[in-house]
Amino acid sequence: MSNRYFRIIQWSFFIVTVLFLTVPLCFLVLKGMQGIVECMQSDEVMFSIKTSLKMSVLSTVICMIAAVPVSCVLNTLKGMNKNIWTKVLFMPMSLPHLVSGIALLLVFGRNGIGDFLFDHYGIDFIFTPQGIVLAQLFINLPFAINGVLAALEELDPKMVFVARSMGCNEFQAFRNVTLPLLKRALISNSIMTWTRALGEFGAVLMVAGSIQMKTEVIPTAIFLSMSSGNLDMAAGISVILMIISWMGLWLFDRILIKQTNGIFQ
């Protein structure tokens, strides 16, 4: 094949892919802009936006706090051990989110430990806002662990050993060397985790349900609008979700990644 044809094929794929990925979004934005004002005036939609933002930020924070030590442990394992534990922890990644939701429902519902948690600690996850965080955490934690683990594996273990040899104990080496070197990976992982949490639907629906003015998040609000045949409202909320995601990414980039060159630069 000549260079010319090879390039034509590559560019053809490129153009078709760009159209495939952008045209539907453009249509959604055009349609959604008409419904945005109506959405902003709806108390229900505004409630779902606030709930989505609060819960997604909370679940992202918990996710990253848990992902770092878990990844560190995985990184110290070798061979079969590492392989087995990685596969176990990444299992939810391969499941449809609805299935993950059912699994959570079984464990944290009345048939599982739900009653025990409620009676002893007053915590209830099913059909409550806490359930939203639980579902988002369950879906996102394996992805977060995967991201942090990949960054840890790229880190030269000799770097940590040098820190140890000059007097750092394990925590000091982690605090002064590992963590700063993971900074960029942690920030980009937080962004990805947050955007995934913001858009999580299946598991949230199963665990927290879609109770108006209680457990309604943006994706469930879209789903309810579509179910009632209000396409304008559904498109409007979708555009709001897109704007929030992009503003979040932009803010993260401006505020947090400034010193590490930024993901958009």
């Binding site: 000799k158 050993f161 040098v162 140890r164 040899s165 000059m166 104990n169």
Partner: peptide
């Protein structure tokens, strides 16, 4: 442990 050996290391 390495941190208690007081050994300097240059790679």
């Amino acid at each position: 442990s390495p941190e208690e050996r007081n050994i300097g290391f240059v790679y």
